[in-house]
């Protein structure tokens, strides 16, 4: 159902007709999308649309009941999460899922767990260049970090596995605007380094501003897709699916998604 303009290179990730759910409750009802190498693609939509479930199904934390996940040309539908990370797929999960009682250093070391031997000092350095505050917090337990620092640690931990595709679930959740800007600034830098990103966000405006393309998800399937620029400009999409962030329309029609309240 998605009609995409070919981006030229072969997609790194292809999701075809994916169905998944919890127990007998279906959440995904035939999701189609693709992410090409070097792209930042964002997935937006209301709470409960199935965005997080889609990311979890891609890495194998949730089992697909139908459809396919193809990663780097290989079928990865039944791949276990502990295998997915070895293939270069890293998920920064909803709620961050840090190892709270363990130190920042241990969390980062665990990020490199899938790689052979001891973690490379270079990998630590790369994370510290992106998030200098983590260097100062190395010996602290993760649970003592502020929300923003925890998000940085969650991303840093994922980067320690040297991923090719980073799946990022709601990095802005619960953070102050300044911290959100910092984290999205990091995303831009990572993209320059050649990382491919699939980003789930409820903050539609900021997500589309940093992405190349976007998908709008509704009740378990992709409802709209297009370039980030077009989606931002599309009145229909903006109004119905993204929630209008103009004060005038927001008051008359409560949006399904949280509006971009943190951006000016």
């Amino acid at each position: 159902m998605t009609t995409e303009v070919s981006t030229g290179s072969a997609p790194l990730l292809v999701v075809e007709g994916l169905h998944a759910g919890y127990g007998h409750v279906p959440v995904l009802r035939g999701v189609d999308l693709h992410v090409s190498a070097g792209e930042i693609v964002t997935l937006v939509g209301a709470n409960g649309a199935g965005k997080s479930t889609l990311l979890k199904t891609i890495v194998g934390l949730v089992h697909a009941t139908r459809g396919r996940v193809v990663y780097d040309g290989q079928d990865a539908t039944r791949t276990l999460p502990e295998r997915a990370v070895r293939a270069g797929l890293a998920l920064v999960p909803e709620g961050r899922m840090l190892f709270g009682p363990l130190t920042v250093e241990e969390n980062l070391r665990l990020g490199a767990f899938a790689r052979r031997g001891a973690p490379d000092p270079e990998d630590f350095e790369r994370v510290f260049v992106l998030f200098p505050v983590l260097r100062e917090r190395l010996g602290q337990t993760a649970s003592t970090l502020s929300g923003g620092e925890q998000q940085m640690l969650a991303i840093g931990r994922a980067l320690m596995s040297r991923p090719r595709l980073l799946l990022l679930d709601e990095p802005s959740l619960g953070l102050a605007p300044k911290v959100i800007a910092e984290i999205f600034g990091t995303l831009d830098r990572l993209r320059t380094d050649g990382l491919t990103v699939l980003l789930v966000e409820q903050d539609v405006k900021i997500a589309l501003r940093h992405a190349d393309r976007g998908y709008v998800m509704r009740t378990g399937a992709i409802a709209h897709s297009g370039s980030a620029k077009d989606l931002l400009a599309d009145d229909h999409v903006r109004h119905i699916y993204l929630g209008a962030w103009d004060d005038t329309s927001a008051s008359s029609n409560p949006p399904q998604a949280r509006t971009g309240s943190v951006t000016p």
């Binding site: 890495v59 999460p81 998920l91």
Partner: peptide, 13 residues
């Protein structure tokens, strides 16, 4: 701490 988080970093829990 967490099986899911461990699996995500590659631990065969």
């Amino acid at each position: 701490v967490s099986h899911d988080a461990s699996r995500l970093v590659g631990v065969d829990t």
